[in-house]
Design a protein around this nucleic acid. Structure first.
Lengths: 222, 222
DNA sequence: CTATAAAAATGAACATGTTCATCTCATTGA
DNA sequence: TCAATGAGATGAACATGTTCATTTTTATAG
């Protein structure tokens, strides 16, 4: 009997069931109001099993982030050509579009962004999705009409990645109705990107400045 | 028998004992590794009593932040005269000097800065110390030789306050040895404050830009 | 001095994230 | 067919933040 599928798929089915149940509950009641026991019960499964597939509670929300970052990377391959500043802004806006529908479920992400202990967005298990998003930003700059040379490209990509994390944090903390403050912030940034962006790298000392900032960024976070 | 002190001081004594014990343990083992039971036991007291004086664990670290912010405000009254950008930088650096010796104990502050739920640095119980620090930044700008008019002053003060929170967050997350990345960051900022600062507000549209940003900041956070 | 009410203090119990010894069952090799 | 094996699954137990009914202490009124 059995085993119609490629290889023991039972486990993957269970993981998916647990994942979907969890995401649904997070969306309905929020992260903190959702108990690991709730998730297990709703899925008709024991708590222990939940921990077989997700090492801890934050891993569940990080799995959601991972799925969304894959979605994001997919969207980014069709990024319209243009100046690097414009493409970077588009990359930023796309990231919020992708995360947008799951803001309630992602509320815990701000804690993960900032977690100093083992797990968190800067820990090992999330290295893959982090690298994926980082690459998307690097490509946004590298694929621009006015792309600077490789070294500068890489540094700019890293800084844009960090800026994108900052914007996401801002968006998560934004208390204004429908996060309109974040929309306005993006409007201001779009203006700046259109106005200052094109000439920014032509300023004397711009390269030195970018490289200095890059050192600070990589030293502190990466 | 009795009551040698002004009024029932027993409670305050106990609170102080608990506070000092907690801060010491946080410094020794870090916030997460210190249990409420640890604190109570070390102080020779029951858990329940600890909760009589601190509504929750984060309140203890927020009490430390409150004490440090009082210290900070005290130091800020002797801020040297000069340009607003220079004074703002000094304010920023002073804040890190004050927090510096307690970085280990304050590790949990990053979570508080970002907490969306009831407690946290943006919640009611911390309103007082938050206002105190905000005022320090406002005064740093308002007391400058080249202080702009009141409206602009207030807006700049608020933005500097938010920037200061961002720098603290960065410093808490900084993984580089002895947080040298943060030192470098401050160096770059100092350079920028010295170079661009004085002429920044003279640029056309500078006022409009600051006021726009102010709207975003107050709408999102305050 | 005693009764009493308010403040201080206690410790058991609860909620929830997490771990672990144990059990069940499907697949596989003989 | 059947024993063996390992993945899948279980639920009790643990750790820690938090609450609360209760007891003890202290200060004061009578």
């Amino acid at each position: 009997m059995g085993r119609a599928r490629g290889r023991s798929q039972k486990g993957e089915d269970t993981r998916l069931l647990l994942y979907q149940t969890a995401v649904q509950l997070f969306a309905e009641r929020g992260y903190e109001q959702t108990t690991m026991r709730d998730i297990a019960a709703e899925a008709g499964v024991s708590v222990g099993l939940l921990y077989r597939y997700f090492p801890n509670k934050s891993a569940v929300v990080l799995a959601l982030y991972d799925a969304l970052s894959a979605d994001y990377a997919e969207r980014m391959v069709t990024l319209a050509p243009g100046a690097w500043a414009t493409r970077a802004m588009a990359a930023l806006e796309t990231s919020l579009e992708v995360l947008g529908p799951h803001r309630a479920a992602l509320a815990a992400l701000s804690a993960e962004l900032v977690s100093t202990s083992g797990h968190g967005l800067f820990a090992e298990p999330t290295a893959f999705s982090r690298a994926r998003v980082q690459r998307a930003f690097a490509d946004a700059v590298a694929g621009a009409d006015d792309a600077p040379d490789g070294e500068l490209c890489a540094a700019l990509g890293r800084q844009l990645y960090v800026a994108h994390l900052a914007v996401i944090l801002w968006w998560l903390l934004d208390k204004s109705p429908a996060q309109r403050a974040t929309s306005r912030l993006l409007g201001l940034l779009r203006l700046a990107a259109g106005g200052l962006g094109p000439m920014l790298l032509l300023l004397p000392g711009a390269r030195a400045a970018v490289m200095q900032i890059d050192e600070v960024v990589t030293d502190a976070l990466l």
